[in-house]
Design a binder for these strands. Structure first.
Lengths: 335, 335
DNA sequence: ATCGATCACTAATGCGCTTTAGATTGCCTC
DNA sequence: GAGGCAATCTAAAGCGCATTAGTGATCGAT
């Protein structure tokens, strides 16, 4: 900046004014300074900028999952792509970290906060009894919870959510209409908020219709557990006629397991994957799936966070309900 | 820090000395200061620290791939997990960005450099005629190229690489021993260094053995192209008896396509996936695959980068050659 | 011709930390 | 007991930027 000031023949302050669109310099000086800066390829040092009051120009994202369960999911990278699109426009950096569990995650937030490393964070995989919103509220770190439930208790925190409950209800409607009465929901991790929401909704819908042979079985999202649970429920006395998997990976593994056991899909048992991906069209039969625009989800979340950083109020915004794409793995109940 | 100084009854400089293990302060004072700092949950502001000469305590990673081809791969998140393990130990942050193409990627490096945002970067997906090493060398940004070829031309840049050529040669050996003479390699993106290396090696190995019906077909790594190419080559006059896919996703899609066409795997055609993942055990027949420890790959790369940041010399380190896991999709040539 | 007001700019301060150059003390040596 | 030296601490400068207070100069109004 000193260089610029010298070459443009003005003081450093003038340069600062010129480049930040602040009043106090004439248009012609401003132009001259701009040109010199451009020519020198100058960019403000984020450190210096931050030290003098501006933010860190960075938002944080930490995901708490063990390395091996992380890779299979296409969800995260899609989400991140969407987030990046928005952040890149504003030249905000994304500080990314993967940790083992929520306790570590909280530690990371504390550190980031103490080191002034981030201006805000995005929280994924919200849980029941989640300590994170409280912590972030306490630290005063702007945050948006991705995939949470509307939550009035935290005025500084935005929520971006999809109506899992509605989607589940619609899905049960659909399966019911096809004649299915025995449904097993191979759910995801028990502690996760959306898992619990889906489980609760399924139970409520079943009760409403007087269905007794409807249940959820929590898993760890892995193909191994997906296959294992599938085998277990299909080999029971009265096997279900419809299986709903909480992710694409388990659904694919489940279909393979069912086929091996001699069950026809969708003849003997219908299968729905919650989360669409290329995977669903890579196996035969093609999997019917609940699809949503994950990239857009990320965009929306990032927009909410930037709005928060701009001093806007915390909001709760809903993204479109996942839509059922019917492919080949669902059909009328045969049993 | 002012707080700490006050409460410990010493000057700010003494605090700095104490907390940075610098001489100039007695052990008892050092302990006292440490205790106060701990109690206050103090962490140095990275910005201030950076401004006074230390680095940014951050390394950068940018991946240049369109959003949709990004998600299917389990490679990246695994790699990042490994990287994180090493970075977390040293409290280094990871600044992550996804962009459209290499030109954008270069722009990001320039910006990061100008803004002093990162101390070093990790470069993935090295290409033939890659502009990035030159640029990074010019900027003086420490870097490690992940999956590159040993490259003597850039003294400031480390390389971590796997011997794709050796793996390909071994694979051809294996297939040749099984009696396969017509092999098609469904390759990845043409510009990528490892793609070219695999293609060249395959051609060389074929020539060495006088095999004329061996070739590579480049693709974009997508399941769609994988399936399309599979159909095309299998429907040609003399179909290959062995297919080698450059990633797991295409291999799975390819098997599905082959099966649909009435080809038995491995009876009519053997299939090998280059890159192992849960996917390979989610389809029947289970896919034989070249497996490597991607998390470890990330760890190694991160270690090289931290070594570079510590002022060590640039090195070229090789990770273990991918190992062929024979499952159910490979067998003796039937034709 | 004088005054206040506006404009274009400069000087100086502070952000939180590291670091260099002192300042003070105690201790040893001859 | 004076000089020297090491140990321990403090004062002050500087990193690159934003910002506030201050300085001239120009202009319109009286």
């Amino acid at each position: 900046m000193k260089d610029i000031a010298q070459r443009a023949g003005v003081s450093e302050s003038a340069v600062s004014f010129a480049l930040n669109d602040r009043p106090g310099v004439s248009e012609i000086t401003r132009d001259r300074v701009r040109r010199v800066a451009e020519q020198l390829g100058w960019r403000p040092s984020t450190a210096a900028r931050q030290l003098s009051g501006e933010g860190a120009a960075t938002v944080g994202l930490v995901v708490a999952r063990p390395a091996d369960t992380l890779g299979v999911d296409s969800f995260f990278l899609q989400l991140i792509s969407g987030i990046q699109e928005v952040l890149a426009e504003r030249h905000l950096g994304l500080l990314f970290q993967v940790v083992e569990d929520v306790a570590d995650e909280c530690a990371v937030y504390r550190r980031w906060w103490a080191e002034h490393r981030v201006d805000g964070v995005m929280v994924v995989d919200p849980r029941t009894d989640d300590p994170r919103p409280d912590l972030l509220e306490e630290l005063g770190l702007p945050a948006v919870v991705i995939g949470g439930v509307p939550d009035a208790g935290h005025p500084g925190i935005s929520t971006v959510w999809a109506d899992d409950a509605g989607a589940m209800a619609a899905l049960v409607d659909e399966l019911y209409a096809l004649g299915h009465r025995r449904i097993v929901h191979i759910a995801g991790l028990p502690g996760l908020a959306h898992t619990e929401r889906r489980i609760r909704t399924l139970r409520a819908e079943a009760e409403r219709r007087g269905l007794t042979e409807v249940r959820s079985v929590p898993t760890d999202y892995s193909d191994a557990e997906g296959a294992a649970v599938t085998r277990r429920v299909l080999e029971s006395g009265t096997p279900p006629t419809a299986l709903v998997y909480d992710n694409d990976v388990m659904a694919v593994a489940g279909v393979a397991a069912a086929t091996e056991l001699g069950f026809l899909v969708p003849g003997d048992v219908s299968v729905v994957a919650w989360e669409d991906s290329p995977l669903c069209r890579m196996v035969k039969p093609w999997l019917s799936a609940l699809s949503r625009d994950t990239v857009q989800f990320g965009r929306t979340a990032a927009q909410e966070l930037t709005a928060l950083l701009d001093g806007g109020p915390a909001r709760t915004v809903q993204v479109p309900v996942p839509r059922l794409i019917e492919r080949e793995s669902t059909g009328p109940c045969g049993a």
